[in-house]
Amino acid sequence: MVKLKIDREKCKGCMLCVSFCPKGALSAEEKLNKRGIKPVKFKEEAGCIGCRMCMIICPDNCIETEK
C-alpha cells in the first residue's frame, strides 16, 4: 500500500491531482490552510496504487510518497 504525504501549506487547491487520480484517493480538505484555500488530502482507505499521476501533474510539488 502506497501512502502519500501532502504539503497542505504549499497546496494552492488547483485540484488537478484530484481529477487525475484513478482511485479517487485525493479530495479537498474541509479545513483551510494558511493561504485560505482548502488543500488536497489523501484518503488512505481508497487504495493508492502508486501510479504517480498526481505527482506528475501537481504544479506545486506538494505531493510526496511516504514509505
Binding site: K12, M55, I57, P59, N61, E64, T65
Partner: peptide, 29 residues
C-alpha cells in the same frame, strides 16, 4: 514506490519553496 528520485520536491536543482504562480499554472510543472 521505492524510487526516491520520484519525490519531485526533493529535486536538487529545484528549491523547496512555494512559487508565486497561480493555482493550476503550468510554469511550476
Amino acid at each position: 514506490m521505492k524510487n526516491k528520485q520520484k519525490n519531485f520536491a526533493q529535486s536538487r536543482s529545484l528549491r523547496n519553496i512555494s512559487t508565486h504562480y497561480c493555482p493550476g499554472c503550468g510554469h511550476g510543472i
